[in-house]
Amino acid sequence: MNIFRFFGDLSHLASIFILIHKITTTRSCRGISFKTQALYVTVFVTRYLDLFTSYVSLYNTVMKIFFIASSCYILYLMRVRYRPTNDPSIDTFRLEYLVGPCVVLALIFNYGYNPTELLWSFSIFLESVAILPQLFMLQRTGEAETITTHYLAALGAYRALYIPNWIYRYFSEGYVDPISVTAGLVQTGLYLDFFYVYFTKVLQGQKFELPA
């Protein structure tokens, strides 16, 4: 554990609390992609299956349970409690374009041909693109509530902080996990456009609006 990793995880936790706060205080999940949230549940469940087989630390276990539980809770909020505020007609990204390639990539790039390793690898690839339906929706509507942009910024910061974490680990442990690093770089890259608008508009007090 190093500070980059720790603050990355804190940022990830913060993003989830911001999202739950947004949905429950506005009593609406408008602007949030159900597909992206469903992908996160898939990511967490497939990756954290090792909860039952390998123990890392209390921190690790508690965080894994939290991520699975909170992502399921968000789906519940969107699908049940605030269902009328969820508009599927603008959440149109085709999931098969994401899931299919991730299955193929996991079959090619993995650390062992057994269910746990294949699912782990699949979850890493899937996480790297899970935000795309959300970004696609943002692109389509051309604007976002400020609280939603804070959610995305916290989520992007979590990914960005994992990069110095890997650099630090390379020098302190002399090992690089090529699957995590490659997928992580791609994932962080997807946020670059968003971050540009976030820093130049939202943090200057303006509304998040994309040029027409």
């Binding site: 990793r5 995880d9 990830h12 090792d50 390998s54 890392v56 630390s57 690790n60 965080m63 894994k64 991520f67 650390y111 782990w120 994992y162 974490n165 890997w166 680990r169 442990e173 090992y175 690089v176 996990d177 699957i179 995590s180 690093v181």
Partner: peptide, 10 residues
């Protein structure tokens, strides 16, 4: 090594 170092990450 004994596996891949990022398995302890979240």
């Amino acid at each position: 090594g004994s596996g891949h170092s990022s398995k302890d990450e979240l």
